Amino acid sequence: MSQITAFGTYVPEKIIDNHFFEGLIDTNDEWIISRTGIKTRRYSKDGEYTSDLAYKAVQNLMESSGKDISDVDFIVVCTTSPDQPMPNAASRVQYKLGIQNTGCNDIYAACAGFVYGLQMAHGFINSGVYKKVLVIGSETLSKITDMSDRTSCILFGDGAGAALVEPGEEQFLAFNSGTNGDLGHDLYLSHKKNSINGVGINPNSKIVQNGRSVFKWAVGNIPIKIRELVDKAGLTMDDIDYIVPHSANLRIIEAIAKSLDYPMDKVPESVTEFGNTSSASIPIAIEKSRKNGGIKKGDIVLMIGFGGGLTFAGTIVRWNL
């Protein structure tokens, strides 16, 4: 059995409001808020990268919990924006933390990454392969954003979240996941290849998104997957205290909540203040809710990430922090 025993987050200091984009593209604050709900986001400094944000999230985890991480035996970093393709981001985090004798691996599942990381950690702990696993979602999306793309540049921000998973009282009540790889060309980051599924793409090393298609896929599929996950846990929607979806866009979150007939005040988000931080958005939303008197010990919390792939991953946990 496994449980989350410590939790931490970090966002860069630099705040970017919507007026920043008025000098780059044809847009304004009202337009951005009406379509995305985003008011501000955070950008990392020059020379500050994904592993740096991950390191600071783990520092926050240690400070808030008093946990010793020197004996962590596996590190998972979930990211779409690693410092470089090789060595992996987890190895850079291992170096910065000075942890010895630990395995390191990255999960490259975009906005679903953090929940996939929790699934992996749960499997490691329950199988007895590892006893102490760090799961980190960390992104510096500002460094791979196409600032000339009016539809996407306004969305993304930087941040990180970390969870320590150890043996203990069973906390994870259910998992699910799935992928529609036939829609891979609707959200991608390509360095070399110029096609996906036979569809021509732009290999410009920047995020490219067909927002309309991703919106339709998320709103049409995620409510179904949430209900399936609740059924799998042997629960009802009334049993779920909070649903924490990936904070892609406030309008997507609102549409998902409406489809489920679920109250928005029970759907924590991080997008309005921090933008779309991909794999970091769920932990940042959870921490924001905790600080504002929302999620508390004993609550049943459903997390579901969705994005590039197009893929999704969900879990239900009994929050114990």
Rank of each mutant, 00 (worst) to 15 (best):
F7S: 07
V11E: 06
I16T: 09
D17P: 04
N18G: 03
N18Y: 02
N18H: 02
N18T: 01
F21R: 10
E30C: 04
R42E: 07
R42Y: 13
K45W: 02
K45A: 14
D46K: 11
D46G: 01
Y49N: 07
A54C: 02
N60F: 00
N60P: 03
M62N: 00
S64L: 06
G66I: 06
S70C: 04
D71V: 06
V72M: 01
I75S: 09
V76N: 00
P82W: 08
N88Q: 11
A90N: 11
R92H: 13
Q94W: 14
Y95Q: 15
T102N: 12
T102V: 13
C104G: 11
C104V: 11
D106G: 05
I107R: 04
I107A: 09
Y108R: 14
C111Q: 05
L118R: 02
Q119M: 15
H122M: 00
I125Q: 06
N126D: 12
I136C: 11
K143C: 14
M147G: 01
D149K: 01
D149N: 09
R150Y: 01
T151Y: 01
L155G: 05
F156E: 04
D158C: 10
E169I: 10
Q171E: 15
F175Y: 12
N176G: 09
N176V: 02
G178S: 10
N180T: 10
G181M: 05
G181S: 08
H185L: 12
D186W: 08
L187V: 15
S190H: 06
H191R: 13
K192Q: 13
K192T: 15
I196K: 04
I196F: 12
N197S: 11
N197R: 14
G198W: 13
V199E: 15
I201W: 13
P203S: 02
S205N: 14
K206D: 07
Q209D: 01
N210T: 08
P223C: 09
E228I: 06
K232R: 12
K232W: 10
K232Q: 10
A233L: 07
A233Q: 02
L235F: 14
L235I: 04
D241L: 02
D241W: 03
P245I: 04
H246G: 05
A248W: 01
L250D: 12
R251I: 05
A257L: 06
A257F: 10
S259C: 00
S259F: 00
Y262I: 09
P263D: 13
K266A: 05
E269Y: 10
S279W: 02
P283A: 07
P283D: 06
A285R: 09
S289I: 07
N292P: 00
V301I: 09
V301E: 04
G309T: 05
L310C: 07
A313N: 00
T315H: 02
I316P: 05
V317F: 07
W319L: 10
